[in-house]
Design a protein around this nucleic acid. Structure first.
Length: 565
RNA sequence: UGGGGCGUAGCCAAGUUGGUAAGGCAACGGACUUUGACUCCGUCAUGCGUUGGUUCGAGUCCAGCCGCCCCAGCCA
């Protein structure tokens, strides 16, 4: 059962306090993506956090697109984001756009100017940077800092009307060029950009900056708790300044938490976009991508993703979650939901020499032994079957209890077979096995004559259906303990590393495509159908590659195994 | 060397006013097994970055060190 309670965390504690003290009667949170890319598992953490928190205290959550930078944003992204949020299982209260509030923001900026709290600055971007000061040196006041209110009003109006080219002027908040917090050194709050906006078209040529826009968006909607990531902690004084100086009646509280990082996972929109643009992957929804659409196509379920996010918790320390946790939660979710069938991924033909030629019998097989409600199906058995190549070794190590010359194993749902002969080609490759079966050992007859150590899966050859299987490994491998790597090579700087550097470290084995067989009763599987292939893992029918002739299965995750060769 | 944060097991993470270290993942034993899966049972911090201090008692309070992350976009 899915546990919907948010486990104890500092944000929840704040909300409880605010409710108990009467500061708020009702909670309103928001998920504020910028529509400049697809959502990934890290966003899922924020989505689940915001919606669950509101839910738990009978509050609501808005989805608001933070679309204040027209040159990066696109409706393709807003559509995918809406789809992903819904797929995760959440219903927003309001669906808004920051661009809905442009007029409001403009009016508040005029108010700032009238109060002498903002001014139009004509310094170039370079000059602004140069006069900002450094981490330990204060900045210098802009020569435009003390313009009259009238002049500022006039200039700002003309900025809006399109009189000036991009970059020529900006509107700056007048705060404190000597503040130890660089964000307070007269931050730019409006810039000129003659770019058409996905929502407002060419109505505007000035656009508000995040630090100015976001608090207003929150306040206008009446957000009580504005949850964002750690890097905005330094921006909070500015957030509060805007709320106060713009005289917003509602005063949301910004709270920061650590974003999600996972082992072997790229979590940067920039890098993910690079993988898509460079064709390293199939698209934003490539099953190897940590995007919500990629995980969906891979076969992850919303339930598993929610459970995962709830379990990892929320805190303020940077951390890296083991990707195995995510895997754990899909296995758990699919355990009772997915039918268990047999598929042979790397086929090896087996002839059962003492089984009558031309005979076919239909055996019973449970669809999910742990969930009897899923019923029983019939599977064919005959003289020719396929087994897994990995289930045979000519010269096995001790403790190997699959097939090898002279050894007897159980065929799941069928009979015991014993390997008598190994057929090879000229290269010495094993191409076929000759075995004998024991009719006494038929499944369901409770045969107790002798025990066998191994049970392997198989598919009857004549009725087998061809299928493609795609096995995945992480797209990138985490850096090994850079053992004797010489230290001090500035160029190998990670994080902000160059694109070429990042692309060089892609795992060449992230995708393995195999052709094998599935049981005949699996004809007609539909995209997104999920199965446990006996002993091989959980698989999902691919939405894009599956054809009527041949289904393509993405391995979601393997089964755990304590078997070591 | 300015400012803002963070340090509890291999990983994530609880720990309300000081009262004797939750839970999950992983790992490792064992039982069971027609999935080397699942399930079940057991093990896994005399210890909470570190050093001192206050106290009958400190992960929780105080002081000092050490380490890590973030900030100098007209990105969000």
């Amino acid at each position: 059962m899915e546990n919907k309670q948010v486990s104890s965390n500092f944000i929840k504690n704040i909300i409880i306090e605010d409710l108990e003290s009467g500061k708020h009667k009702k909670i309103l949170t928001r998920f504020p993506p910028e529509p400049n890319g697809y959502l990934h598992i890290g966003h899922a953490k924020s989505i689940v956090l915001n919606f669950d928190l509101a839910d738990e205290f009978k509050g609501l959550t808005n989805v608001r697109f933070d679309d204040t930078n027209p040159v990066k944003e696109d409706t393709e992204y807003v559509e995918s984001i809406k789809e992903d949020v819904e797929w995760l299982g959440y219903k927003w209260d309001g669906l808004y756009f920051a661009s809905d509030y442009f007029e409001e923001m403009y009016n508040r900026a005029v108010l700032l100017i009238k109060k002498g709290k903002a001014y139009v600055c004509e310094l170039s971007a370079n000059e602004i940077r140069e006069t900002r000061g450094t981490l330990n040196r204060p900045g210098q006041e802009s020569p435009y800092h003390s313009r009259s209110v009238e002049e500022n009003l006039d200039l700002f109006t003309r900025m809006r009307s399109g009189e000036f080219p991009d970059g020529e002027k900006v509107l700056r908040a007048k705060i404190d060029m000597a503040s130890p917090n660089l964000n307070m050194r007269d931050p730019v709050i409006y810039r000129i950009a003659h770019a058409s906006h996905h929502n407002t078209g060419d109505k505007w040529c000035i656009y508000p900056m995040y630090d100015y826009a976001h608090p207003i968006e929150d306040a206008v909607e009446g957000i009580t708790h504005s949850i964002c990531t750690l890097e905005f902690e330094d921006h909070r004084p500015l957030y509060d300044w805007v709320i106060r100086e713009c005289e917003m009646e509602c005063q949301p509280r910004q709270i920061e938490f650590a974003r999600l990082n996972m082992t072997n996972t790229v979590m940067s929109k920039r890098k993910l976009k690079l993988l898509v643009d460079e064709g390293v992957v199939d698209g934003w929804d490539d099953p190897r991508m940590p995007t919500i659409s990629g995980l969906r196509r891979r076969g992850y379920t919303p339930e598993a993703m929610r459970s995962f996010v709830r379990e990892i918790g929320v805190a303020k320390g940077n951390s890296i979650v083991d990707a195995q946790m995510l895997e754990h939660f899909v296995r758990e979710d699919l355990k009772l939901k997915a039918p268990r069938t047999m598929a042979v991924i790397k086929p090896l033909k087996v002839i059962i020499t003492n089984y009558p030629e031309g005979q076919v019998e239909w055996l019973d097989a449970e669809n999910n032994p742990e969930n009897p409600a899923m019923g029983v199906r019939k599977i064919p058995f005959s003289r020719e079957i396929y087994v897994e190549q990995d289930d045979f070794m000519e010269d096995p190590p001790p403790k190997y209890f699959r097939l090898f010359p002279g050894n007897e194993v159980r065929l799941k749902n069928a009979y015991f077979i014993k390997c008598n002969e190994v057929i090879k080609d000229e290269q010495g490759q094993v191409t076929e096995l000759r075995c004998t079966y024991d009719p006494e050992t038929k499944s369901g007859t409770d045969f107790t004559g002798r025990k066998v150590k191994g049970t392997i899966h198989w598919v009857e050859a004549a009725h087998a259906l061809p299928a493609e299987f795609r096995l995945y490994e992480p797209l990138i491998l985490d850096e090994q303990e850079e053992a004797d790597e010489p230290e001090g090579e500035e160029a190998v700087e990670t994080g902000t590393g160059t694109s070429a550097d990042f692309l060089d470290h892609i795992n060449p084995n992230s995708l393995e495509i195999l052709q094998g067989f599935i049981e005949p009763n699996m004809a007609g599987v539909k995209p997104q159908d999920k199965f446990q292939f006996f002993r091989y893992g959980y698989f999902n029918v691919d939405v894009r590659l599956t054809s009527p002739e041949k289904p393509v299965f993405n391995r979601i995750v393997s089964l755990k195994s304590s078997f070591k060769l």
